[in-house]
Design a binder for these strands. Structure first.
Length: 295
DNA sequence: AACGAAACCTGGTGGC
DNA sequence: TGCCACCAGGTTTCGT
């Protein structure tokens, strides 16, 4: 589910249920997800108040009164569902057979406000960790992480600095979380299409002779911000299941221009091209060969 | 150093 | 209908 817009959507959904509440009971149903849970995971959470819920790239960070931060990553299939306490469960809203709930509910957080937050992850590529707030920037998850694409750092200049001299394809450079952190396969495809850049063009081709950004580099920075913002606004993208913590759907998938549109006509007005698919470092890239020329 | 492929796991789908 | 190969929003690890 999760690139940056989906994670941000989850954060916004979890915030009212978690912030200001204490963990009253934490049920951890297995010893590991992608990685082992930290020692005494449930005990270190129980009794702690969630002071704030933040996001960095594709990570969720719950600030705890203990001074620790609950770090959560959703991997490919991680989902959260919030059930409000007290209220009778809405029949069929979620917890139905294929709703992503039940078989792969790995963690259940009971909160002092009566809410129940369930983490479900069929493929278990997600993980959770507890790290001290102080020094979180240098903790293993965040040391070396790239810039936040919705933050102030992203610009043509920073892209030029990050991509200078790189022969690696633009697609790979944009997926590299050490450079820009938060983009994934969908939004990279969409951003390259909107900018009219070929996914196999070398990253360094966005940098001028004196290290200055090309026009395309500046345009790409704007496009990345736009596409991510629009997706957040739409509640993320829903590919196989709900995107939001109340079981509702994101709808940005309806705004995809190239992603998963192989063989469909290019949406650019007047373009007679057809969306093509290629595989780069093991992942599908969708693009329009007419609009996105190697430069 | 830099790159790509494979690995991790389960489930859905499309083609026969 | 049934089976199976292939594909999936991510990241780490292992070979070149």
């Amino acid at each position: 589910m999760p690139e940056l817009p989906e994670v941000e959507t989850v954060r916004r959904g979890l915030e009212p249920a978690m912030v200001g509440a204490r963990f009253t009971q934490v049920i951890q149903r297995r010893p590991d997800l992608r990685f082992p849970f930290p020692d005494r995971f449930a005990e270190r959470l129980e009794g702690q108040e969630v002071k704030a819920l933040g996001r960095r790239a594709k990570y969720l960070l719950a600030d705890l009164s203990s001074g620790e931060v609950l770090v959560m990553h959703l991997g490919m299939s991680g989902r959260f569902l919030v059930a409000q306490g007290g209220a009778t469960r809405m029949p069929g809203e979620f917890h139905h057979e294929h709703g992503g709930s039940g078989a792969h509910d790995h963690v259940v957080f009971g909160l002092s406000n009566g809410a129940t937050v369930t983490y479900n992850d069929a493929r278990r590529f997600g993980f959770m960790d507890l790290v001290p707030r102080s020094g979180i920037e240098t903790s293993k998850h965040f040391a070396g992480m790239g810039i936040e694409p919705l933050g102030n750092e992203l610009s043509g200049e920073t892209i030029a600095g990050l991509f200078a001299g790189k022969r690696t394809p633009l697609k790979a450079a944009l997926l590299d979380q050490r450079l820009i952190a938060g983009l994934g396969n969908i939004y990279v495809c969409e951003a390259l299409f909107r900018t009219g850049l070929h996914p196999e063009a070398p990253a360094g081709s966005l940098v001028g002779k004196k290290g200055e950004p090309t026009d395309k580099a500046r345009q790409l920075a704007d496009v990345i911000r736009d596409v991510l913002s629009e997706a957040v606004e739409a509640g993320g993208s829903t590919l196989r299941d709900h995107a939001q913590v109340d079981g509702s759907l994101g709808y940005f998938q309806h705004s995809f221009r190239v992603y998963d549109r192989e063989k469909e006509p290019c949406v650019t007005p007047g373009c007679s091209g057809t969306v093509a698919r290629l595989v780069q470092s093991g992942r599908s890239t969708f693009y329009c060969p007419e609009c996105q020329k190697r430069s």
